[in-house]
Amino acid sequence: MDDLTVSSPSPLRRLSVPTSGVAWLAVPCLIALPFVGISEYAIGIFTLGLFFAVYAMGWDLLFGYAGEPNFGATFLIGVGAYSAAMLNSNGIAPPWICILAGAAMSVAAGVLLALPALRLRGPYFGLVTLVAVLILRQLIILFSHQTGGEIGIAVPEVLALSPIANYEIALGCAIVSAGVFIIVARSPFGLILQAIGQDPLNAQAMGFSSVKYKLAAFCYSALFSGLAGALMTFYMGTASLNIFVDAAVGVQIIIAAIIGGRRTIIGPAIGGVFLIVLGEYMRPFGRLSELVVAVVALLVLLFLPNGLLGLVKLKRRAH
């Protein structure tokens, strides 16, 4: 599964397995989920899980395809969330405009983050992204008059009041993101991106501009991360450092993507929802819950390095 090479089209065919029949069944099921009588509380958890799924998918496009280990997913999300929140809290624009502006700002942040990726490889790039989050945090604290500092910034308006409507908004965002990411990943663009990620020298020798493709990958990832971040701000009613601009949250996103299965787009989405639901399920155990979630994630990392979706694929191949 990890012997992906550019010359063989098989990874793409394998990729399509979980996305074809099952996906068309899953979409109506997900839309109908809040109407089957689960509590409003559970709907709220799934809403958060869906936003998280978008973040994990965005990470997967960058790591699974472009080969860029982005430890600063929350840099992109944070810029989107804070841009939207600052616009709205000052009464400058209505929610939808704020959300679009947040997504646009996030794309700009994505370009900024892509710059070092064009110069640095592997772990060095990972470090820059990690530092980017820390710097954004410091800047938000420094300009606390505008950003609310460590307390966070409240958003006066909401998109929708009912939990079901909020859930459907999150679901819409997740489905559109998943669709775009899958189309991008399975297109010739995605194939070239993989080639650049695995062997940049060869790919460039074949005439593909790594600058252009990597920049585009960062823009796609940033667009949807920022969109989801801005939507989540309006859902939560506040943008705060510990939710949107936190290195630990960035790591959680990576864990979600690895648990679900790298290089599959859908896998990380499942991993994202799974991680949020697991964390919530363990909440009564207090601090012990974080310990248990970390242990579970570590076990998956060590014993199922290809994630849950990797397990499904292994079974399929065995048949």
């Binding site: 990890d2 970390a294 994630a297 570590l298």
Partner: peptide, 28 residues
């Protein structure tokens, strides 16, 4: 079957998870 980049990221994520485990154990 891990590529070099995969191994780097796994190592970073693995040690970070270990951080969380240690930290929560200490806090408990």
């Amino acid at each position: 079957g891990l590529s070099e980049t995969d191994e780097h990221v796994f190592m970073l994520v693995g040690t970070l998870l270990w951080t969380i485990i240690l930290q929560e154990a200490l806090a408990n």
